[in-house]
Amino acid sequence: MNPKVLIGQMAKLHNISTQTLRYYDNIELFKPMYIDKENSYRFYGVEQFAHLDSILFLRALGLTLEEINTFLVKKDLDTLISILNNKEIDIENEIERLKTKLKIIKSKVELINQYKLKEVFHICRLKHISNRKIIKTYFHKSRDIVEFEFGIKHLSSTIGDDLCLFNGLIGIIIDEQMVKEEVFDYWKGVTLLFEEEFINSEGLEILPAGQYATIVFEGSYDKGKEDYLKLLQWIKDNDFEVTGDAYLVTITDVAFSKLEKEYITEIQIPIRKLFP
């Protein structure tokens, strides 16, 4: 066999593209060893096979070309072990991140399946809700769609987590006094709510566990007024009192479905018994 090979054969033997080899050549990571003086053809030597195998192995592990070049400059066992140890840590961290993402996905699917059942709609329920983490911003003008949308973006950028709008729940805040006055259309602000295990960002408050009167409705937020008033009457009829701001918690919305009938919102009002 010829001890020298052209770029096409080299690429085929290593299952990579000729463009990749040309790029490695351009950045001086891996260059052909031989140049034919008569026709200027460039050839790789068979003795370079192991060298390219090293590059492709480290690339497959996710090392950057800069990291690979650092190894190739020294190319000794201590450098290799150091690089692999660092990559082991990176992979373990990535595994933990993927486990968290998997848990978030399963939780979201379970949540949607739980709430899309028709029998959950328009029924008043008493619910104990565990500690949640919360971040919120208040509106200058009630029900301003611009403030609402920019508010959500502000909260998500403050958290700095690309998945926060997926693993959290968007909520509209209705001021406690407005709740007591049975006002539905005056919205105080917007919030993001998280189960504690799904978010580690600093700057979030704890929304303490407590008893909530809840009701679920479908459609846009405007469709919730009747259920809101129904829930407030249920609170009175069962000798409860309102103890804080109410939340219109988005289970699904336009981000999840183009069908308005599939938008799901839960009204959550913190309460306690008037006569323990």
Rank of each mutant, 00 (worst) to 15 (best):
R42Y: 01
S156Y: 04
I170R: 07
I170D: 08
S257F: 06
I264D: 09
N200L: 04
L192W: 02
I112E: 09
I89Q: 13
E196K: 02
K258H: 07
T250S: 13
V179P: 08
E262S: 00
G151W: 02
L63C: 14
W187V: 12
E218M: 06
I105M: 14
Y34F: 15
I159K: 01
S107D: 15
E119V: 10
N93H: 13
T20H: 02
F275A: 13
F43P: 02
I251E: 02
E28T: 00
T243N: 09
I112N: 08
E67H: 01
I199S: 09
A209T: 05
Y34K: 07
L204W: 09
G189A: 08
E205I: 04
K153E: 14
Q19C: 02
G210H: 09
F166R: 03
S17V: 04
I215Q: 11
D78L: 08
Y228C: 10
K106E: 15
L192V: 04
R59T: 01
N26M: 07
R143A: 15
N2T: 01
L29Q: 00
E94W: 01
R143H: 12
V5C: 07
Q177T: 14
F194Y: 05
I135K: 08
E149G: 07
R272K: 15
N200D: 15
V249W: 07
L65D: 00
Y41I: 05
L84C: 10
S40C: 02
K108D: 10
G210P: 10
C124A: 11
L155F: 01
N69S: 03
